[in-house]
Computed example of a mutant assay.
Amino acid sequence: MKSFHVAMESLHSPSKQRCIAAANKSSQRKKKRRRRKMKRLNATMRRLQVETNEIRKEQEIIRRGQREVREKFEAIHHECEQLRRETDLITKQSLNTQLRLGLMFQILRARESNDFNKAACLTQLLRELVAKQNNQ
């Protein structure tokens, strides 16, 4: 039994108690450090989440803007094609008008010079040209 009492007394010795107290303080310090680290980590995580959400919103705004620009570009491209077609049509109409005016002028010259055969041929040609253009 003495050995038990001796062991108990050795646990209650001041040096042992200091060691136990120091160990407790050390573990408390570690817990506090861990808590501080966790608080910092949580704060960093919250800040990162906020930044991520802001970036996500900005990216969505950019995507919307790109979509709008793409739609405007497509509308402008379509309008450009339509203008090109209209220009081609006007050019063809202008050429046809020039051709008809040329034939009419030749008809007038032929009539002035009393060349009625030539005038009749040119008139027939003009009629065929006008009919062809009306069919198109």
Score class of each variant (00 low, 15 high):
2 K>Q: 15
2 K>P: 11
2 K>C: 10
4 F>W: 14
7 A>K: 04
7 A>I: 08
8 M>C: 15
8 M>I: 14
9 E>R: 15
10 S>V: 05
12 H>F: 15
13 S>L: 02
14 P>K: 00
17 Q>W: 06
18 R>N: 15
19 C>M: 09
20 I>M: 01
25 K>S: 09
30 K>R: 10
32 K>F: 06
33 R>V: 05
36 R>Y: 05
38 M>T: 14
38 M>L: 15
40 R>T: 08
41 L>V: 11
42 N>E: 11
42 N>P: 03
42 N>G: 06
46 R>E: 14
47 R>A: 09
48 L>S: 13
52 T>V: 08
53 N>D: 11
57 K>I: 01
58 E>H: 07
59 Q>N: 13
61 I>W: 00
61 I>A: 08
62 I>M: 01
62 I>Q: 02
63 R>S: 07
64 R>H: 02
66 Q>D: 03
70 R>V: 00
70 R>A: 11
73 F>V: 04
76 I>R: 03
77 H>Q: 13
77 H>K: 13
82 Q>S: 07
83 L>C: 02
84 R>P: 00
85 R>M: 07
90 I>H: 03
95 L>N: 13
96 N>Q: 11
98 Q>R: 12
99 L>A: 05
99 L>Q: 08
100 R>P: 05
101 L>T: 07
103 L>G: 01
110 A>S: 03
111 R>W: 00
113 S>D: 12
114 N>M: 13
115 D>S: 06
117 N>H: 12
117 N>P: 04
118 K>W: 04
119 A>C: 02
120 A>Q: 07
120 A>H: 04
121 C>Y: 08
122 L>M: 08
126 L>D: 04
127 R>H: 07
128 E>F: 03
128 E>P: 00
129 L>K: 03
136 Q>G: 06
